[in-house]
Design a protein around this nucleic acid. Structure first.
Lengths: 147, 147
DNA sequence: GTCGGTGCAAACTATTTGCAATCGA
DNA sequence: TCGATTGCAAATAGTTTGCACCGAC
């Protein structure tokens, strides 16, 4: 797993230098925090995670850095049915879709080769050039339906 | 197609009276406007549509009424990858998924029995009780990829 | 007449932006 | 050095809410 942080750091550094931007300690700390768990997170959660390690980064910098991480495809931004954006890191975390429990907010990841294939067929049919997709199934998870 | 507005009106009236709410002219006008096209719309577009017919309804009332229409399942609320909510009416408009062109913002609807079936299988596998799902494919539509 | 509904303006939430001070290449 | 970055606070965008007045049942 740790190798993914390493890989992400490299991708990010290359991206930064290629764009003549600068690698700052804030950006490094945010990248580390993003990789510190495998979970989906929102900006508040990331801030809390950083505060726990006594690292101070402003909210604005987090937004700005996440945009960069999304741009170089280390992080994926996603919207569920609530108002704020959620993110997840991509490296070591291949494409997958989500089951979202509307009771406990738990998110279960799944992947289906067959669904992916059918989606490709749909795109072909409509002469549509896919760049990304998201499949979300909302409902009650195992625990919540048995309560 | 007009029969759907009729059906929607009935569903809405029943819902309203069952909950001891009141049917107001604002609510009727909003319902009509929602059914006046088959398209996806956001709150601003609905306001413009209403203004064109010289009907004045406040933005707040639109939000409040749309919530009711969503609650009685005449309208579906959906989020694409931008910040505001979009809506579509459901009656006469069976379940479908979306191809979204990120260039021209066009939305193409599609439906795949096979994908639906596979989704059901996924839910079974995870013992997940689905209430709703959304599949969105982002990319370039036919017109935009040929420019 | 009694609630519920409406419009308005203010409040709220998530996010973005302008700016002066600061920092990295 | 010099332009990029940061934090702060103010600005925005979309949506929600409190309240006085209005209207449906």
């Amino acid at each position: 797993m740790d190798r993914y942080v390493e890989k992400a750091r490299k991708v990010f550094r290359d991206f930064i230098s290629q764009k003549s931007l600068k690698m700052t300690s804030e950006r490094e700390k945010i990248l580390d925090a993003v990789f510190s768990t495998h979970d989906h997170f929102d900006v508040d959660e990331l801030l809390i995670r950083l505060k726990e390690t006594k690292i101070k980064v402003s909210r604005a910098t987090i937004y700005r850095t996440l945009d960069l991480l999304v741009e170089c495809q280390i992080v994926k931004k996603m919207l569920f049915n609530d108002s704020q954006s959620r993110y997840e890191h991509v490296l070591g975390h291949e494409h997958h879709d989500h089951l979202i429990c509307t009771e406990c907010r738990k998110i279960i990841e799944f992947y289906s080769e067959e669904i992916e294939g059918l989606q490709k067929a749909i795109c072909k049919k409509y002469d549509f050039q896919e760049t990304d997709h998201s499949l979300k199934i909302y409902g009650k998870c195992f625990n919540c339906r048995n309560e």
